[in-house]
Nucleic acid binder design. Structure first.
Lengths: 248, 248
DNA sequence: CGCCCCATTGAGTGGTTTCAATCGCAGTGG
DNA sequence: CCACTGCGATTGAAACCACTCAATGGGGCG
């Protein structure tokens, strides 16, 4: 099922069977893309949005010298550029990291969907706001944490997000990034990321080799990165309650 | 009119008279708040959202030592925590900067509104995505720009945003921030912000005194901050076209 | 008048970058 | 089968930007 992982772990159960079916029916063709491809460019008019089924993608912006700043890393289940539906243009590039499988949703189909399903619309809206919440956390990471904390925070976040969609077990998950990619996400140089990773390894916090992350000390890493998972709005987060009914 | 400035300069004209009236009718009571008040705290359940009518607010997160990282500065016309409507909880604090006037919108009223007005719903959705776009730019600012560039970028952004709602003229606008606030927005220390502001002043780029920003060299400041306004999705942005009809 | 917050300046420290070189490994072609 | 190639990872040394610590100045307000 195409939309299997959409909102999995973050209130997917607030979707009725009817809504799930309607969303599934709105999906266009599935396609696969190779690694390191640019999928959408800044300023481009978009008429479809992509749901990521398998693999990893990223969103990024270029500075004047051509250096990239990643603004988001997308994992399976993410509706990568659903924000292109209300916005119609993107203010950043989207690219693949490893090879991916995606489903495209035509915006006309989404318009029909949202005309008929106001509650589902709010869930779709919610999913785009999850991205915004993650953006805020990235701002915090870059603005307030030193290098080690930034990497620790990023890996802690990915561990939780991948765990929610069943792609992380016991702190281990695959992540098709290079050290240079991590640097672009954390506002560091690849040289320094290398040193930070070594420090984290020698500290028995985590390892990263060959595209596989193994978090040895989940709590310690979270503390180092000042990571608290509430902003990911998981079904059973630190705010306590499982997802309540959305509407009063 | 309460919603006068909402989406002003960014596609407010895509709202029909009917929709404008419906939104206006959904507004709850107007109230005023003093400067430096905390309005919503992290994790709090929210049942209303605030439209900022006059004054400035900010959204921020605290690190472990209690230092703040601003993640957004809100100006008149901003629907400050509309994202609380689909999300129901906030992952950050919201506070006032100077004194403000706000209108509250009860979420039950918004539910009724969005049940009946799918097109207006997409505009509300769009307005929350504008925040996300600004978040992304803040990530870029913190990840890729040196101190001078960060301040330059922030001020360039505020100049454009305030200009869109008629609160900036010729690069001059009031901004009730201290140098420490700017530091918290830019991931710097207040000491260093002070030095940066002096450098910008001596370079004839801009001045900031007594809560008033005067941008002397708009283009130069924008270049220094690698600022390009497309991400603000203005009616007449660098992507060229005035806002087209939203639906095909 | 005196207090407090904010702005300002100086000196010294340090985390991160820059520049540069080396290493490891996988893919490629001879 | 083994050079050749290229990318990513690794390490070292030096330079620099921003931070920390500390002190002074200025203006509004009780």
């Amino acid at each position: 099922m195409i939309t299997q992982r959409f909102l999995l772990g973050r209130g997917r159960d607030r979707m009725s069977a009817d809504e799930k079916a309607a969303l599934e029916a709105a999906a266009g063709p599935i396609c696969t893309l190779g690694p390191r491809e640019i999928v959408v460019r800044t300023g481009e008019r978009v008429t479809q949005s992509m749901l990521l089924i398998e693999g990893f993608m990223c969103r990024y912006m270029d500075d004047r010298q051509g250096y990239r700043q990643l603004v988001a890393i997308q994992v399976p289940g993410d509706f990568v550029d659903l924000h292109g539906f209300p916005m119609r243009r993107l203010d950043h590039d989207i690219g693949t990291l490893g090879p991916v499988k995606i489903a495209r949703f035509d915006h006309r189909a989404l318009t029909r969907l949202t005309d008929r399903h106001p509650h589902l619309t709010r869930l779709l809206w919610f999913s785009t706001l999850l991205d915004a919440a993650q953006h805020r956390e990235w701002i915090f990471r870059l603005g307030r944490l030193p290098a080690e904390g930034r990497v620790a925070h990023l890996m802690s976040e990915l561990n939780v997000r991948l765990g929610m969609v069943g792609l992380a077990e016991g702190g281990t998950f695959t992540l098709p990034l290079t050290q240079a990619d991590i640097a672009e996400a954390c506002g560091l140089t690849s040289v320094h990321v290398n040193r930070v990773l070594r420090a984290l390894r020698e500290d028995n916090k985590m390892t990263f080799r060959g595209g596989v992350v193994s978090i040895v000390d989940v709590a310690g890493l979270a503390k180092l990165g000042e990571f608290e998972a509430q902003y990911l709005y998981g079904d059973h987060d630190a705010w306590g309650l499982p997802a309540e009914g959305e509407d009063a």
